[in-house]
Design a protein around this nucleic acid. Structure first.
Length: 273
DNA sequence: CGTACACCCTGGCCGC
DNA sequence: TGCGGCCAGGGTGTAC
């Protein structure tokens, strides 16, 4: 579910709430693990610590404290929200951060594909989860020359290439479909066959789609919610995702859906070559 | 190394 | 109304 626009929206929402003077008063883990074990022993590292900064890297949210770093990933169904009382707890609320303003920051994740970890600030550089990541799609490092060079000799489909976080981060199943449509590139095209022109159109399309979605607060198909527990609205602007058998907005032929490495893939066979 | 695939897990929806 | 099957925005481990 959450791709770059959703994670960015959640990060911005957390930033508004977690003012610099706020400290973490208490940490409660309501189960032992999500996808990986919860850092049961490391929780003392963040107790009584002030929150100093919050940033997003790829689809991860990084909450800096004075001495440590909270690493969070929303997986498919993760969310962060704030409550003023423990009476408001819901099923799948797995981590509670009690804050110095008496509110609770809560990580909820039905499918538990997400991540909540506490690491040392220095380990960020060496941590395997981060050291192998590709460039941010909205940074200068992601440009047509990079994409063209990086795709050379690659046989995998361009869609899979773009979803591989080693090549570029933050792009998931929805936005890759949308960006490929905007760029007029077939998801099945072997990455190595991409022309310079197509690489240029793809970079621009990815950046445009991601920026538009961030403005809409992301796409809420099902579970995704902002920190205020609201839905994003970009799903209303999807041109191909979820529109199998419906008319293409450009040429009116019927959109195709096919599974590609287990992920549903939507596109227009007429407009995307 | 690159690629393909199963798997982790719960819930909602669809068809019977 | 109930139930089984299928599908879902992600990432990783394993096998070739």
């Amino acid at each position: 579910m959450p791709e770059l626009p959703e994670v960015e929206t959640v990060k911005e929402g957390l930033k508004k709430i977690l003012k610099p003077e706020i400290t973490i008063r208490d940490v409660v883990f309501r189960r032992k693990d999500l996808r990986s074990p919860l850092p049961l022993k490391a929780k003392n590292k963040i107790i009584a610590q002030a929150i100093t900064n919050i940033e997003r890297r790829a689809k991860y949210i990084l909450i800096h404290t004075e001495n440590s770093l909270i690493v969070s990933h929303l997986g498919m169904t993760g969310s962060w929200r704030v409550e003023l009382s423990k009476k408001a707890l819901r099923t799948h609320d797995h981590v509670l951060l009690g804050l110095s303003d008496d509110s609770f920051l809560i990580y909820n994740d039905a499918r538990r594909f997400g991540l909540f970890d506490i690491i040392d600030q220095e380990s960020l550089k060496t941590d395997k989860r981060f050291s192998l990541l590709g460039p941010e799609p909205l940074s200068d490092g992601f440009n047509k020359d990079y994409l063209f060079a990086k795709t050379r000799q690659k046989k995998i489909a361009i869609k899979q290439f773009l979803m591989d976080q080693k090549n570029v981060v933050g792009v998931g199943n929805i936005y890759v479909c949308e960006a490929l449509f905007v760029a007029g590139v077939s998801p099945l095209l072997p990455a190595g066959k991409l022309k310079v022109k197509q690489a240029e159109r793809l970079v621009l399309a990815i950046q445009k789609i991601l920026k538009q979605s961030i403005k809409s607060g992301g796409s809420s198909i099902d579970d995704y919610r902002t920190v205020d527990d609201k839905k994003g609205s970009f799903q209303q602007k999807h041109k191909v995702y979820g529109r199998k058998g419906k008319a293409c907005f450009k040429c009116h032929s019927l959109l195709t859906m096919q599974f590609l490495s287990g992920r549903s893939t939507f596109w227009c066979e007429t407009c995307q070559k």
